[in-house]
């Protein structure tokens, strides 16, 4: 083999190796944007950001942003969602501070309403304990026990 050919092979190999890396990384970025659970879990829970204007986006997922189920994504339908420790809930939280039937979310006119269903420690939006059916804005932190939820697109 000539020196030139070997040099070409050498650079070609390094280029190909980096090709693999770069293609993987770009596919990985697209993977993060895909609507799967891994993708939505990747978006970190940012506090203090303004919730998007209501009516503009329709939340499609309920995302757990804190607690032992962190990263869990529940795709929302039109059916109500119940949260609690008992196994007959839609979302079963493994959380000592949650009640067996803790809270209920339901949809009306494209918006999600949350209500407490007689929990011990209460259901909180931001720092406020809710007392009746309350509108849950996308991006607002909903706290049940030590678990925090958020509506996301």
């Amino acid at each position: 083999m000539s020196e030139l050919a070997l040099t070409l092979l050498r650079f070609g190999f390094l280029a190909l190796l980096w090709c693999f890396v770069l293609i993987t990384v770009s596919a990985l970025r697209r993977d993060l944007q895909a609507p799967d659970s891994a993708a939505i879990a990747a978006a970190p829970a940012r506090t203090g950001r303004k919730p998007p204007r209501p009516g503009r986006i329709r939340p499609r997922n309920l995302v757990v942003t804190e607690g032992s189920l962190m990263g869990t994504v529940l795709p929302l339908g039109s059916a109500p969602v119940t949260i609690g420790r008992a196994s007959d809930n839609t979302l079963v939280v493994d959380d000592d501070y949650a009640s067996s039937h803790h809270a209920r979310l339901y949809q009306t006119e494209g918006r999600w309403i949350v209500e407490d269903v007689g929990s011990t420690n209460g259901t909180w939006i931001d720092r406020n304990r809710i007392t009746g059916p309350t509108l849950l804005e996308p991006g607002a932190p909903l706290r049940v026990g030590r678990t925090v939820f958020e509506l996301r697109k």
């Binding site: 039109s78 059916a79 109500p80 209920r104 949809q107 009306t108 059916p133």
Partner: peptide, 9 residues
Amino acid sequence: SAPTAAPQP
């Protein structure tokens, strides 16, 4: 008071 009386889970 649930405005939409949807069935349980």
